[in-house]
Amino acid sequence: MQLLTSSVGRKILMAITGQLMVLFVIVHLLGNSTIFIGWVNAYAEHLHAMPPVVWIFRIVMLALVGIHILFGIQLTLENSAANPQGYAVNNKLKATFASENMIWTGLLLLAFIVYHVLHFTARVTPDIVKGVDALGRFDVFTMVVSSFQHGIIAVIYVAAMVTLFLHLSHGIQSFFQTMGWNNAKSLPVFSKIAMVLAVIFLLGYSSIPLFIVTGILNK
């Protein structure tokens, strides 16, 4: 029960669920990258050949997102209640835009995830092109390319990845501190590793809509 109600327990749950989602972000980026070497249709075909695995994975992800959001909102409300009156002059020494706006970048990411699932998983948005490739597989490549050729959709995805960058630039290093895995010497090292990872995610994910909207990657 300590884990669900105490200040530190809930922080640990936030950290663990967050980091499991970061693992998903890594795997998802690797999967996405197959679009550059022409394997994305094969990748999608293999993935969806195992429906039980896919569904277990989705349910686990939903649980992680749910726990992370629930405690995130609860802790943020408690924290703003604990600090009801700000200063006339506000001079922060260490806190960053990213660390102070985790709730907002988090909620924006939630909105993006809902859109993203409706877009490429449920495939119910009007821009979606559903077809099959020469080998009879669902044509993920054409679906993605024709979507991102709409400039507005490319912009939405890149903006979401900037939001993800902000969220994770604080979130990943925060995980090590919350788990107690760092000391005074390793904290700055973990902060740098977190920043490098967040930049890799930003560049890696954004490169797909950017390459498509600029015409470098096309049908």
Binding site: S7, K11, L75, K94, A95, T178
Partner: peptide, 14 residues
């Protein structure tokens, strides 16, 4: 009535 720590590290700086 204190809040929860979210690793801003503002405390150490202050």
């Amino acid at each position: 009535g204190f809040g929860n720590c979210t690793n801003h590290y503002e405390c150490q700086a202050a």
